[in-house]
């Protein structure tokens, strides 16, 4: 593989970056760990975001702000509130250390990546995405719910440069679980669950690969979430949760796994995570 690039730029300001990105065949470059594979033959210009100061994790009121260029290992090492454990768990499970050292939080929600551990975790945490848009005339900041961002990515409507994500700092508990063929594999299915003042949130990913058109972005398991607002007594929540989860989750199959297996797997992971959450909180989620 090779990239047929005419230009590589490393702008010092967001305004410059956005202006350069307006050129045809130009793309923003974060860590670059997905660059040297199929699908980039058309690129003629890359705009490297490394000099824009977008890395870093900081408390910002009731939120934790994670800069888009924060590497996954940076996220794992960051001093996040204990309730945000799902983020570190998802980031730390990604591929391998050399990739985690380069791959960024922003990069993980900026393209049609099938492999979306961090996206699943962000969705499970009801994150907010901060974007910079605009052009030569100025820079506009926009905030989007993670679900709309992922929707935009899926439909190709995504615009702007991700500058940060914000996650609520008051989440009491969160967790991330994935199932995969091999330990350094992309997950067949993954799940993130969080519990906090705004209730329980569940997100699942089914990371379709192989044949074209099987991309499956993380989705929110709304019915499962609703069920847990008022869970059945005793242990019967497990069966009830499996039933609603299987009913509502999409069945995305691909070259490696079938849709019904992936969906059932996701339901199992949801139950395991909710159980872990209950165990951590001694009862009600």
């Amino acid at each position: 593989m090779y990239l047929d690039l005419q230009t590589y730029t490393r702008p010092a300001t967001m305004a410059e970056a956005l202006a350069q990105l307006a050129a045809p065949g130009a793309a923003a470059l974060a860590g670059g760990t997905h660059l040297n594979v199929h699908g980039h033959e058309h690129l003629r210009a890359v705009v490297d975001l490394q000099a824009l100061g977008l890395a870093g994790v900081a408390r910002e009121g009731a939120k934790v702000r994670i800069g888009a260029m924060t590497a996954l290992t940076g996220l794992v090492a960051a001093d996040l509130p204990a309730g945000l454990a799902a983020l570190g768990q998802a980031a730390d499970a990604e591929k391998n250390r050399a990739v985690r050292n380069r791959s960024t939080v922003g990069g993980r929600i900026s393209r049609d990546r099938s492999n979306g551990r961090v996206a699943t975790a962000l969705l499970g945490l009801e994150a907010e995405v901060e974007l910079a848009t605009g052009g030569p005339d100025g820079v506009t900041r926009v905030d989007l719910h993670i679900a709309s961002r992922l929707h935009d990515v899926a439909t190709g409507a995504a615009h702007g440069v991700v500058t940060a994500v914000r996650v609520p700092a008051d989440v009491r508990w969160s967790g991330y679980l994935a199932s995969q063929l091999s330990a350094v594999d992309a997950p067949s299915a993954d799940v993130a669950v969080s519990a906090g003042p705004r209730g329980v949130h569940i997100a699942t990913g089914g990371h379709g690969r192989g044949a074209a058109g099987t991309l499956a972005l993380p989705t929110t398991a709304a019915a499962a979430t609703a069920l847990l607002a008022n869970p059945p007594a005793g242990d019967s929540w497990r069966a009830a949760l499996r039933e609603v989860a299987v009913a509502e989750l999409p069945a995305h199959g691909d070259a490696l796994v079938s849709g019904d297996y992936r969906r059932d797997l996701a339901a199992t992971l949801v139950i395991r995570l909710v159980a872990a959450c209950l165990a951590a909180h001694g009862g009600a989620a």
Binding site: V37, L181, S182, A183, V184, D185, A186, R209, G210, A211, A255, L256
Partner: peptide, 13 residues
């Protein structure tokens, strides 16, 4: 072949 890469053809790590 649908999985012709080390990402998808899994040899043991």
């Amino acid at each position: 072949m649908q999985n012709a890469s080390f990402a998808d053809y899994k040899i043991f790590s």
